[in-house]
Amino acid sequence: MNARSCPCGLPKSYAECCGRYHSGTAAAPTAEALMRSRYSAFVRQDAAYLLRTWHPRTRPTRLDLDPGMRWTGLEILGTGDGSAFHNTGTVEFRASYRGGSLHERSRFERVDGAWVYVDGEFPAQS
């Protein structure tokens, strides 16, 4: 990945991919796009975006990100619903970081037409 490519792993620049969601000039059209943009926000330490895209029902009052955390890649393992035609969706993913990985099945809902992260579960490692 070069310095200008998007951290989410899609073959686009950050500006034409997740950057436009982070800046607020566009909204993620699918649950997967929101999940990818949230991963990129973790990479870029953008706590404000993460809180803004968290469901009001489950959003923490603050988010302290570890400045030493180095995310190294995102792999989408599966999706369920979450398109422009749905109000809920799930995205299962593996996010790698220096020294390990996080495997989560995240739930998303629409609030006022925008996708937001609700919560996640951690599937048993196989």
Score class of each variant (00 low, 15 high):
Asn2Asp: 11
Asn2Lys: 13
Asn2Ser: 13
Asn2Phe: 10
Asn2Gly: 13
Ala3Trp: 08
Ser5Tyr: 03
Ser5Thr: 11
Cys6Phe: 02
Pro7Arg: 08
Cys8Arg: 00
Gly9Asp: 02
Gly9Tyr: 01
Gly9Val: 01
Gly9Met: 00
Gly9Gln: 00
Leu10Ile: 08
Leu10Ala: 07
Leu10Arg: 08
Leu10Asp: 03
Pro11Leu: 04
Pro11Cys: 07
Pro11Phe: 02
Lys12Ala: 12
Tyr14Cys: 08
Ala15Pro: 01
Ala15Arg: 09
Glu16Ser: 11
Cys17Asn: 04
Cys17Val: 12
Gly19Gln: 06
Gly19Asp: 06
Gly19Val: 05
Gly19Ile: 12
Gly19Cys: 04
Arg20Gly: 11
Tyr21Phe: 14
His22Asn: 07
His22Lys: 13
His22Thr: 13
Ser23Ile: 10
Gly24Val: 14
Ala26Gly: 00
Ala26His: 11
Ala28Tyr: 00
Pro29Ala: 10
Ala31Trp: 03
Glu32Arg: 04
Met35Glu: 09
Arg36Ser: 00
Arg36Glu: 02
Arg36Tyr: 00
Tyr39Glu: 01
Ser40Val: 07
Ser40Gln: 10
Phe42Asp: 01
Phe42Val: 06
Arg44Phe: 08
Arg44Thr: 15
Arg44Leu: 15
Arg44Trp: 08
Gln45Cys: 06
Asp46Trp: 05
Asp46Leu: 14
Asp46Ile: 09
Asp46Arg: 11
Ala47Gly: 12
Ala47Pro: 04
Tyr49Thr: 15
Leu50Trp: 00
Leu50Asp: 06
Arg52His: 15
Arg52Gln: 15
Thr53Val: 14
Trp54Val: 06
His55Thr: 12
His55Ser: 07
Thr58His: 09
Thr58Asp: 02
Arg59Met: 05
Arg59Asn: 07
Pro60Asp: 01
Pro60Trp: 02
Thr61Asp: 15
Arg62Ala: 15
Leu63Met: 15
Leu63His: 09
Leu63Phe: 04
Asp64His: 12
Asp64Ala: 15
Leu65Asn: 11
Pro67Ile: 12
Arg70Gly: 03
Trp71Phe: 06
Trp71Pro: 00
Thr72His: 02
Thr72Pro: 05
Leu74Cys: 06
Glu75Pro: 04
Thr79Leu: 00
Gly80Ala: 13
Asp81Phe: 04
Gly82Ile: 02
Gly82Cys: 07
Ser83Tyr: 04
Ser83Cys: 09
Ala84Asp: 04
Ala84Ile: 10
Ala84Thr: 10
Phe85Val: 10
Asn87Ala: 10
Asn87Arg: 09
Thr88Met: 08
Thr88Phe: 06
Gly89Ala: 02
Thr90Tyr: 07
Thr90Ile: 10
Thr90Gln: 10
Val91Tyr: 03
Glu92Trp: 08
Phe93Asn: 03
Phe93Leu: 07
Ala95Pro: 01
Gly99Gln: 06
Gly99Ser: 01
Ser101Thr: 00
Leu102Trp: 05
Leu102Lys: 12
Leu102Arg: 14
Leu102Gln: 03
His103Met: 06
Glu104Tyr: 01
Arg105Asp: 06
Arg105Thr: 14
Arg105Cys: 15
Ser106Asn: 08
Arg107Gln: 14
Arg107Gly: 08
Arg107His: 13
Phe108Cys: 04
Arg110Ala: 13
Arg110Pro: 05
Val111Lys: 07
Val111His: 09
Val111Pro: 00
Gly113Met: 03
Gly113Asn: 02
Ala114Gln: 13
Trp115Glu: 11
Tyr117Trp: 12
Tyr117Asn: 03
Tyr117Cys: 02
Val118Thr: 13
Asp119Tyr: 05
Glu121Arg: 14
Phe122Met: 14
Pro123Ser: 04
Ala124Arg: 10
Ala124Lys: 06
Ser126Pro: 15
